[in-house]
Amino acid sequence: MKVLVPVKRVIDYNVKARVKADQTGVDLANVKMSMNPFCEIAVEEAVRLKEKGAATEVVAVSVGPTQAQETLRTALAMGADRAILVQTDQDLEPLAVAKVLKAVIAEENPELVLMGKQAIDGDNNAVGQMLSALLDWPQATFASEVAIGGGKATVTREVDGGLQTIDVSLPAVVTADLRLNEPRYASLPNIMKAKKKPLDVKELGSLGVDTAPRLKVVKVTEPAKRQAGIKVETAADLVSNLKTAGVL
């Protein structure tokens, strides 16, 4: 079984995003970038499927700028076999990313697409669902457990108030939630080995996909600031303040 893992290069999880003064977006100049945390979980799961013998090949794919090659090298160092970069400097919307991935899938024919549930920049939580809709494949989002067997994936999903288990026949799109696994750190020998693994770069234009934006960004602003309040000395002070505030 071939597993395709889309990954995204995003602002590092620990960096606070700052809005540009001209309100055109978020300032990413000289900001530390990393693999989106949910994509790391997806790569880890795919590599574990290979280690268990359920997958034969893990292909990481990213749609983004030249620097996304670093993100793909990270996936290779974690254990992916090869990587594909669809290179573009455009900031694509989720629907466009899903269309690009569909075109890559037409060439690669994976039986499973395993990807993060959401990227921590746009926070859209949309590409996996859109991709499965475009492919007419079943979807299993927010996975906390994945088992492969008998031409299907049995996926336990994080839902409001608990867990749901569904079977999806392969090929399918599965999106990873936080508790699916704890991604490994790539070892130094594996980082060195990753440099020699194949990384194929395609120009976005070569895929013939319509990636025109559907949304016009009017402005990007700072959220309303919350003022820090007061420090209280004791629990009794706290309770009397809360009574005064009318919330008890």
Partner: peptide, 22 residues
């Protein structure tokens, strides 16, 4: 909700339109 986030992007893609999330 987690339920809405699960199916809404699928609707958008089937209609070939963007989803605006949250």
């Amino acid at each position: 909700t987690s339920q809405g986030k699960n199916f809404s992007p699928r609707i958008a893609a089937k209609l070939d339109v963007a989803q605006i999330s949250d």
